[in-house]
Amino acid sequence: MRDNGLPPELNESLNKAVRLEYWNIFWTLTIIVTMGLVLGQSETMKTAWVEDTLGLVPPIMFLIAAHMERRGTPSERFPYGFDRVNGLGFFVAAVALTAVGALLLYNAAIALARAEHATVGSIVILGQDIWLGWLMIAAQLYALVPPLIIGRKELPLAEQLNDKLLHTDALMNKANWLTGAAGLAGVIGLGLGWWWADSLAAALISLDVLNDGIKALRSSTAELVDGTPRALSSASLSEDALRLRDRLRQEFPDATVRLRETGRLIRAEVHDTLPPAEVRHPRHYWPGDKKRAWRVAQVSFIPPTEAEQSRLIPKATKQAAKR
C-alpha cells in the first residue's frame, strides 16, 4: 500500500462525492441563471445571486482536488503526491468567501447609510404587466430547494471521507434556507414599501457569507501551517487526533508528539525517543474504530541526539535488565 494518496477503502465514497458535486454544479448553474434573469436593482437579489455564484467555488475546488488526489502519481517533482491539494482548495474557497462576504456587507451598509430606494419595476408576460418582485420571490423559492437536498447528501460523505472542503460546502448548503428566508423577506419588505428591508436583508446574507468564510479560513490556514488536525466543522482540535496523541504519549511517555494533517490524512512525529523494536504499520497506533484507521498515514520516530542517546540508552538497558 502506498502511504501517500487516497486510502483504497475510500474509493467508493469519493466516487459518490464526485458524482454528487457534478450534480451540485448543474443545479447551482440553473439557480444562477434563474436568479440572474430577474435581478433588477434589488440589493438583496444581487447579494443572493453573488452568494449562489460563489457556491460554485467549493464543488469545483473539490473536483479538482479529487482528480489530482486520485490520478496524480507521486513524481520526482512531487514526491508526496497531491493529497494536500484539497487543503489548498479549501483555503482558496475560504479566501473567496471571506473577501466577497466583506465586499457585499460593505455594499449593503453603504446602501443603508445613503438610504437608497431600490427600484423594482414591471415586465410584460403573456400580455400581463407583472411586478418583477413576484418573479424575484419565485426565483428565490426555487433557489431554496436544490441546496437543501444536496447538502443533506453531502454531509455523510464528508464525514466518511473526512473532507473539510466537502463538509464546509454541505453546511453552507444546509444553512441555505436561512439566507433564502432573509432574501424572501427582503423582496417582500421592498414590495411593502420598506426601502430599508432590501439592504438589511442583503447585509444579513453577506454576514452569513462572511461568517462561513472566516470559519473556513481559520480551519484551512491551521492545516497549511501544520497545526494539530482540526475538527471537520469547527476550528477546535479533532477528537480523533487527540486520542491518537494520547495513545502515542502513553507508549512513549518521554517523547514529544506532534500531529499534523495533510488533506484527510494524519501524520505523526514522535521526537526524542527510539522507535519500537518491531516493525509496525502506522495504522497500528490508531486508537478508535479500525475502519477509520486509514486516517493515520505516517508515524515517524526522531531519535534524540547522540549525546542524549548515551544518557537514555543505559537507562533503557537497566530497565530491561530489571524485567
Partner: peptide, 17 residues
Amino acid sequence: MRNGENRWIMTVERASR
C-alpha cells in the same frame, strides 16, 4: 420617476406600454 416608488413606477410603465 423617483427611485423606489415602485407602485407609481409601475403605473407609468403600464401607461407607457
